[in-house]
Amino acid sequence: MDLVLLIIGFVLMILGIFGSFMPVLPGPSLSWLGLVLLYFTTAIEVNYWILGISLVITVLISVLDYVIPAKGTKKFGGSSYGIWGTNIGLVVGIFAPIPFGFIIGPFLGAFIGELMYDYKDHGRALKAATGSFIGFLASSFMKFVVCMVFLGLYIWIVWEHKAILF
C-alpha cells in the first residue's frame, strides 16, 4: 500500500507542476495533496510542521493567484472595469475552446473592460491589459516555484526513508 501512495503522491506532484500553468488544475493544492499522501504511508512519521507550513503557503498562493492579475491591471492604470474584465476574462478563458484561452482571456477581458470605461482611450486600455498579462505571468511563475519546492521536499523525504519504503 505504501508504494501505491508514493506513486499517487508523485503523480499529484507532477500534476501540480502542470497546474501551475493551467488554471483548470489547482497546482499548489495538488502538490500539497501529494505531500499529504506521503505521510499516509506507514514508513514515514507525520510531520505536522511541514504539513502546516506548506498548507499555509498553498492557501496564500491560491488567494494571490486571483489577486495578482487584478493588481497588475490596477498598477498599469486600469480601472475597476479592467479589474472586473480581467477576472471575467480568466473564467471565460478557462472554459473557452481556444488554445491558450487562459492567457488570452484575462488580457482581452481587461482590454474590453477598459474600453467600456473609456472607449476613446485605446492606449490606456492596452496598457491595462498588458498589466493583466504581466500579473498572470507573475502568478504562474510563483505557483511553479512553490510546486517545484514541494516536489523537492517530497523527493527529499522519500530519499531519507528509502530503506524503509523500498
Rank of each mutant, 00 (worst) to 15 (best):
1 M>R: 15
25 L>T: 03
50 I>T: 02
53 I>W: 09
79 S>M: 10
3 L>T: 03
86 T>S: 14
42 T>W: 04
83 I>H: 12
90 L>Y: 04
59 V>P: 00
22 M>Q: 14
51 L>V: 12
71 K>C: 04
1 M>L: 13
70 A>P: 02
58 T>C: 02
18 F>K: 03
84 W>F: 12
100 F>A: 10
142 M>P: 02
89 G>Y: 10
29 S>M: 14
147 C>H: 08
111 F>D: 11
44 I>R: 01
138 A>I: 08
47 N>I: 02
10 F>H: 02
80 S>Q: 12
119 Y>G: 07
10 F>N: 01
52 G>L: 00
94 I>A: 12
52 G>R: 00
61 I>F: 09
80 S>R: 11
8 I>W: 15
56 V>C: 04
78 G>Q: 14
82 G>K: 15
139 S>K: 01
67 V>G: 11
31 S>W: 05
82 G>C: 15
57 I>S: 10
53 I>Q: 13
130 T>K: 12
4 V>G: 04
117 Y>N: 15
95 F>C: 02
22 M>C: 12
93 G>A: 03
32 W>S: 01
127 K>F: 03
12 L>F: 14
165 L>Q: 08
74 K>C: 01
57 I>Y: 06
134 I>G: 01
37 L>S: 08
79 S>W: 08
92 V>C: 13
68 I>C: 11
138 A>Q: 02
156 W>T: 15
5 L>S: 11
20 S>T: 08
33 L>N: 09
66 Y>T: 09
145 V>G: 13
157 I>G: 07
78 G>Y: 14
50 I>Q: 01
26 P>N: 14
6 L>K: 06
90 L>C: 07
103 I>G: 10
157 I>H: 07
72 G>D: 09
61 I>S: 13
40 F>V: 12
58 T>E: 01
109 G>D: 03
111 F>K: 10
49 W>N: 13
127 K>V: 02
38 L>I: 15
79 S>K: 09
159 W>P: 03
151 L>P: 09
92 V>D: 11
102 F>A: 10
113 G>P: 00
142 M>V: 03
54 S>D: 03
119 Y>K: 08
22 M>V: 15
111 F>S: 08
50 I>V: 06
135 G>L: 00
114 E>Q: 09
133 F>G: 00
43 A>D: 09
96 A>P: 13
34 G>R: 06
87 N>G: 12
102 F>Q: 13
111 F>E: 10
23 P>F: 05
72 G>M: 11
134 I>H: 00
26 P>T: 13
45 E>M: 08
72 G>S: 10
6 L>V: 09
162 K>S: 06
157 I>N: 11
123 G>N: 12
147 C>W: 06
102 F>E: 11
122 H>A: 14
54 S>F: 07
46 V>K: 15
70 A>D: 05
56 V>M: 05
68 I>H: 08
149 V>N: 10
141 F>E: 05
89 G>V: 14
75 K>E: 05
58 T>W: 01
88 I>R: 03
8 I>P: 14
35 L>W: 04
137 L>M: 05
153 L>R: 00
7 I>C: 06
125 A>M: 07
108 L>E: 12
75 K>W: 09
46 V>P: 09
86 T>E: 11
37 L>V: 09
154 Y>H: 14
77 G>Y: 03
13 M>D: 10
99 P>M: 02
166 F>L: 13
164 I>F: 07
157 I>F: 07
115 L>S: 00
90 L>W: 02
79 S>P: 06
101 G>M: 01
45 E>V: 13
98 I>E: 08
94 I>P: 04
69 P>C: 04
134 I>V: 05
